[in-house]
Simulated assay, not measured.
Amino acid sequence: MFAYLLFSAMMVSCYCQDYEYYYYDPAICNKVQAGLWVRDTEDCTIAHQCGFDMEVIQSVQCNASQVWSIIASACVWEWDPDRDDCNGKPLTSVIADPRCVKKSGNNPHPDDCSKFLSCANGTMVAEQRCSDGTLYWPKNGSCEFADAVAFDCGERRIPVSIPIYEEDPLCKLNGQVPDPVSCQHFIQCLHGKRVQRIQCPRGTVFSDVSHKCEWYEEVKCGNRAL
């Protein structure tokens, strides 16, 4: 009997603790799917997670200079033109967006190499910018240092605010051109600018015919040093 009473007391204690943690608030969680987050009605820096019975399960507050974005469902920097829907008016979602080649996940922006599109089931959820000095690389599905990504931007614009390299007279075309001094190196060019100088793998040199690294026996280096 004593054991039964002790067990019952433990159950009541546990229930009360849960009751104190959760609280019913239809003003916040009305018509919100259980498990989803919703921004506070008065404070943009706070978000609440809702339960099955319009109760608030937990709340979080964003760090300084950040607000909760309804579009991104995450804390973002204030005045982010693509995601801060508290202070600004970012682009709204686009259902069945043809730019969402990858139905769920990130896709490159078709015109701007510094941006990418976040998609969910074919719907464009948010248009986002990479951080300063970086560009979006579809190969990795992430933002990387501009110097490593610029050559892969193709026709997508690189903002003038992102420095790559100075203009180079050797870079008349986009792609790889021979290094004028070393046969073991080549120069990656983009929009008339030198992106980087790259060394071929051991045992190979750069061919000015195929514009790629080949076995050194098959390449005529001319005046370029081996």
Rank of each mutant, 00 (worst) to 15 (best):
C189H: 02
A47L: 03
L226F: 14
V38K: 02
E42C: 03
E144R: 01
R99E: 15
R197G: 12
P201D: 02
Y23F: 10
V160W: 13
D18C: 05
I198Y: 04
H191F: 08
P98I: 11
G105Y: 15
H191L: 09
D112M: 10
T134L: 09
D80F: 07
I164S: 01
D84S: 08
K172Y: 01
D179H: 07
C44W: 04
V219W: 00
I71M: 14
C189L: 04
E78T: 05
N63I: 04
G133R: 04
E42T: 07
D208F: 05
C143P: 03
Q196N: 13
I71F: 15
A47H: 00
D179L: 04
L135C: 05
A3Y: 12
F116C: 08
F151H: 10
R129A: 14
P138D: 02
Q33T: 14
W77I: 09
F145G: 15
G175T: 03
N106E: 13
K172Q: 09
C213A: 02
C86N: 09
V160A: 15
N174C: 05
Q199H: 09
D111V: 01
V160I: 13
V205Y: 00
V219A: 00
A3L: 07
Y165M: 11
L170E: 05
S69N: 06
D53Q: 12
C16T: 15
Q61C: 14
S142H: 11
A74P: 08
I28F: 10
F151I: 12
S13R: 07
V219R: 02
A9V: 09
Q17D: 08
T204N: 02
S161H: 09
D152Y: 05
C14D: 10
D25G: 11
G192E: 03
D208W: 03
P201T: 04
V76C: 05
Q17V: 10
Y22H: 15
S93P: 14
T41K: 06
Y165G: 13
